[in-house]
């Protein structure tokens, strides 16, 4: 799949932002006034910024409001609803904390739930696609949620929680790569089933429909990044999990904490790039590519 910057920025930043909102909603850290204000600015900046970025790849962003209509069937629509509800409810909760010094725990709880639901619905947009075996796994939502919780706890300064959550996310990531590498082969789809000619012999793409490229090849058959995939996996793993855990285990300092957050953010971004770049769409089979 083509790793569009807009979706990588969106899933990386929003995942982190909604993760932070989740912990703020639970009162972790229990802040009010100016400190709460700064926390909420960061959380809203990340989550709303990410959502805005996601509209950049739309052909008609001015019609984006129509995407709220099909929540009964579409995960993308459900994601829109969860995000708006989470942001509105958490807004009320933030007003209480920042301006009235009051913790309206009910709003916090509801907002936290919808923040996680937003991350879950985002992951389901990818998980539902049978056409991309690497995404069509139960582990995909687990990965998005574990990343969001780990990043959120890190940003929220919940050191004692962040270390086990980062380690858990690291485990999910490693497992995801291991399973994902086998997903296409185990999906049972090959050029034989794609053409229905598999039972007759070995099928080979002989001649493509055209000499140039097309939308399908640009969008679904992205092979450039695969060459360095192994190196990028190590970079992602070290930056996203190992460096932050090491920095958190060291005696606490604000500088180390900030460094841990930046390292995690960069690592997750690389991991998300790989999530798209390594995903193979079955339509590539028709073109003799993957």
């Amino acid at each position: 799949m083509h790793p569009a910057p807009s979706v990588i920025i969106f899933t990386t930043l929003s995942g982190l932002g909604f993760g932070l909102l989740f912990f703020l909603g639970l009162g972790m850290p229990d802040v009010s006034g100016w400190v709460a204000f700064v926390f909420f600015v960061i959380a809203y900046g990340l989550s709303v910024g990410g959502l805005m970025a996601s509209t950049f790849h739309l052909g008609h962003p001015e019609r984006a409001l129509k995407a709220f209509t099909q929540w009964r069937s579409s995960w993308l629509s459900r994601e829109g609803w969860c995000a708006v509800i989470a942001l509105l409810v958490m807004g009320l909760y933030a007003i209480g904390l920042v301006f009235f010094g009051q913790r309206w725990g009910f709003f916090g709880l509801i907002g936290a739930g919808f923040a996680l639901a937003t991350v879950f619905t985002t992951s389901m947009i990818y998980t539902q696609l049978k056409t991309i075996p690497r995404w069509n796994m139960k582990l995909t939502p687990a990965m998005f949620l574990s990343f969001s919780l780990a990043g959120g706890s890190l940003l929220a300064g919940q050191t004692s929680l962040a270390v086990p959550l980062l380690l858990a996310a690291a485990f999910v990531q490693a497992f995801y790569w291991w399973l994902g590498d086998k997903a296409f082969a185990t999906s049972g789809t090959d050029l034989g089933t794609a053409t229905g000619l598999g039972a007759r012999g070995a099928v080979r793409a002989f001649e493509p429909p055209h000499t140039g490229t097309n939308y399908l090849l640009r969008e679904f058959v992205f092979v450039v990044g695969r060459k360095h995939a192994e190196k990028l996996r190590i970079i992602a793993f070290v930056l996203a999990f190992m460096v932050p855990v090491l920095l958190l285990v060291l005696p606490f300092s604000h500088f180390f904490a900030a460094l841990a957050v930046l390292s995690h953010l960069a690592g997750v971004a690389v991991s998300r790039w790989l999530f798209f770049a390594q995903a193979e769409h079955v339509v590539g089979l028709y073109y003799g590519k993957r």
Binding site: H57, L58, R63, K130, L216, E219, V283
Partner: peptide, 15 residues
């Protein structure tokens, strides 16, 4: 009504 998100093309195995 199409916003051009491309998700339907992603979901189609046949291109």
């Amino acid at each position: 009504d199409c916003i051009g998100c491309g998700l339907c093309a992603w979901s189609c195995p046949y291109g």
